[in-house]
């Protein structure tokens, strides 16, 4: 049996000079990395300890003491007799939802629009005037192994009618941000627009039978906007196309992409193949 504290905790003086906000951001990013990666455990504990020390000095009177937390643990949590964890992995739930959403075309894009409204209400302020998506990817390079491709040479294809582009542009979208290529057979079915005080979303649904490709433009006016995107286990890929950087990832066997700028995030969801999603993003001029 190992004794607690026998693993002498390493010191990381390079973190001590960072601000508390920066340290919190490091921990937040780490919480998205591989949970079984043990290489950063010592650093994590060191950073947490620094935050604890600083917070204790600032807010001594309101802090929950360890003894109080231990008492609470014994009184409220230890004797929960459930055989399962409080928070269970939800793969089964997500899989069922996905299968049924494919059968109801109109659910998907309406859900996306409303989801952004909900997420906007719960955004926490995190940023240091840096590209959030870039920093998450750069932190995760060791675990994600993100690969950066050269500028994709896929040529330019155009099959989207001007009428379709006009309809999307009518919602305030720059025409040069609208793809001129959508995979064969997909037709624009609906455009949904939603707004909150800090956020505007335009969600465009292109349907082909039971399948749907979503084009989503999220305009925000906050430096602290963050957005969480779910991906499966595979590594995301960075693609630089037309002087823009896209992150391509897979979720539920579909290819998705996102691109982040100062006040806009562009998402593309539900594309069947990698080749097709590259064609789509290559057709976006700006």
């Amino acid at each position: 049996m190992s004794e607690i504290g026998n693993n002498k905790q390493k010191k990381f003086p390079e973190f001590d000079c960072l601000s508390t906000e920066e340290l919190i951001e490091l921990l937040r990013r780490d919480s998205y990395s591989d949970p079984y990666d043990t290489t950063k455990v010592d650093a994590i504990l060191h950073i947490s300890g620094v935050i604890e020390e600083r917070t204790r000095k600032e807010k001594a009177e309101n802090a929950l003491t360890t003894d109080e937390a231990w008492e609470k643990f014994n009184r409220l949590y230890l004797n929960i007799k459930s055989d399962t964890p409080l928070y269970e992995p939800t793969e089964k739930i997500n899989r069922n939802c996905d299968l049924n959403i494919k059968r109801r075309l109109r659910v998907l894009y309406a859900a996306a629009a409303i989801a952004l409204m909900i997420f906007a209400g719960s955004i926490t302020a995190k940023a240091f005037n840096i590209d959030i998506v870039d920093t998450i990817i750069s932190w995760g390079k060791e675990t994600f192994g993100v690969s950066v491709s050269k500028e994709a040479d896929v040529g330019s294809e155009r099959n989207v009618d001007n009428e379709v582009i006009d309809k999307i542009a009518d919602h305030g979208i720059n025409r040069n941000l609208i793809p001129t290529y959508i995979p064969e057979g997909y037709e624009l079915e609906k455009i949904e627009e939603s707004m909150t005080p800090d956020l505007k979303d335009v969600v465009c649904g292109f349907a082909r039978g039971d399948e749907m490709i979503i084009l989503q433009y999220t305009f925000h006016d906050s430096d602290f906007f963050t957005s969480d995107i779910q991906k499966n286990e595979e590594e995301p890929t960075v693609y630089d196309v037309n002087e823009n950087r896209y992150y391509i990832f897979i979720n539920n066997n579909r290819f998705n992409a996102c691109r982040s700028e100062k006040d806009l995030i562009l998402y593309i969801f539900g594309v069947p193949t990698k080749e097709e999603i590259i064609k789509i993003i290559s057709s976006i001029k700006e």
Partner: peptide, 25 residues
């Protein structure tokens, strides 16, 4: 475990991940 602190950190990260997934569901 040779590193009980590491074991706890890994467990914590998994709990956090499950909380996020649960909220998304």
């Amino acid at each position: 475990s040779e590193n009980p602190e590491g074991w706890m950190v890994i467990t914590q990260k998994n709990v956090i991940r499950n909380i996020r997934r649960s909220q998304a569901a």
